[in-house]
Write a protein that binds this DNA or RNA. Sequence first.
RNA 1: GGAGAAGUACCCAAGAGGCCGAAGGGGCUCCCCUGCUAAGGGAGUAGUGCGUGAUGAGCGCAGCGAGGGUUCAAAUCCCUCCUUCUCCGCCA
Length: 443
Amino acid sequence: MLDIKLIRENPEDVKTRLKGKEIDCDEIIDRILVLDAERRDLIFKTENAKSEQNKVSKEIPQLKKQGADTTEVLARMNTLKEEIKSLDNQLKQVENEYNELMLSLPNLPDPDLKFGGKENNAPIRFFGSSRTLDFEPKNHVELCTELGLIDYTRGAKLSGNGYWIYRGMGARLEWALLNYFIEVHQLEGYEFVMVPHTLGYECGLAAGQFPKFKDDVYWIEAEEDQQRRFLLPTAETALVSLHMYEILTEAELPRKYIAYTPCFRREAGSYRAEERGMIRGHQFNKVEMFQVTKPEDSDAAFDELVTKAEMLVKNLGLKFRTVKLAAGDCSASMARTYDIEVYIPSMNGYKEVSSVSNARDYQARRGQIRFRREETGKIEYCHTLNGSGLATSRILPAIVEQYQQADGSVIVPQALRRYMRGKETITKDDIKRVTMKSPLSCG
RNA sequence: GGAGAAGUACCCAAGAGGCCGAAGGGGCUCCCCUGCUAAGGGAGUAGUGCGUGAUGAGCGCAGCGAGGGUUCAAAUCCCUCCUUCUCCGCCA
């Protein structure tokens, strides 16, 4: 949520900056300004009426004690009551529309970002290099299937398109990645938290995913609307809400968290042929990094998160790059975002494995996440930042493709071996050890 | 899943239609006393949100788990929901 004072004082400035996100909010902002004025006018009127109501109400018991006639006063009270009721209703209506519009406005992009969409994203750093191969490389779908790492067929059987099953060495590789991430983060002072995987509406609202993207998540039906929960699309949604409605002490900041969760996304209509395999699924695993900071510390925190994500990929020995997103490619809640993109040889392109963002006070305003500054005693909004550290569903394809050998085996990255009992190479022979004879013939 | 009880400030807690923005205690802050400590005496301590104002002081409105209702008037009466606790059932 944006600061209404900012909109009130510099509406044109806000409009211009939002245009950088490729969204024209001029009409919304003009409407907000009208509603804001109406709102304050109604508040003034209601409060005056209520003030009188309070005053008169105090007189009544005294009048009664004196035995005076109260019919006139009671009549006045009745009038006030009606007046207040009507004003309150008007105010409620105005505020409903006002809140709806305020919640619909995206965050302001940082001033240093390029305007426009994806086409203006700029790679700022490159890491690693491609091997020159003396054999025809396979893509990750072939490799994962042949090595028995991923069971796409049975995944689809269980839950449909967009789901897969990690099996045998595939499951161990996945688990090793997650353990590697979690361990590194903990060594660096991040608190490991395990959160519920189903969340209430407020969490999505605070994170900025709702109301706009409420159809992008899976909802769990419930008899009462209040009991409806959704499967989290990212642990960020849970972590933002951890300190919702809280006032933290300055000493408590920064809060640094990591969480591992599966992430559930509908990804309606986003399937592309090139994204087969596990490049885009309805469920994937992710370790999420999250920070709550003082406003003046969020830029440094952002750099820290980007560096952490880079180090994780770098230590896996993968070729990747870091991309500074243009304003229009940053998601609605974010003021700035850098993506870490890993190289997928078969796609001859880069795919996002981490997205690090600074929401500044946008989420904090929505979720009332605040702190008391010691020096002044004043309450201010915190800044929130998040970054994947990392999502595995594209790291694993990158590993198998970038580490594949002529004989179809895959070398296990050094960093992961300690989480795999020293395993150095995954070969087809590994399947025999873990696969049981299937009662069904599945391809 | 069923039955019951409860949710008041940093914590415990009184309060049962107007005299309640809310007793009392603990804690915390300040002051006094005692050489230090322990003990004692006194004063202060409702955050917050919103409106107004100069992002000050002040004033006003809301606020006793949340939302509705009854009433001239609600912490107090009624309804719905949420949460916590106890008991029973079911179970990884």
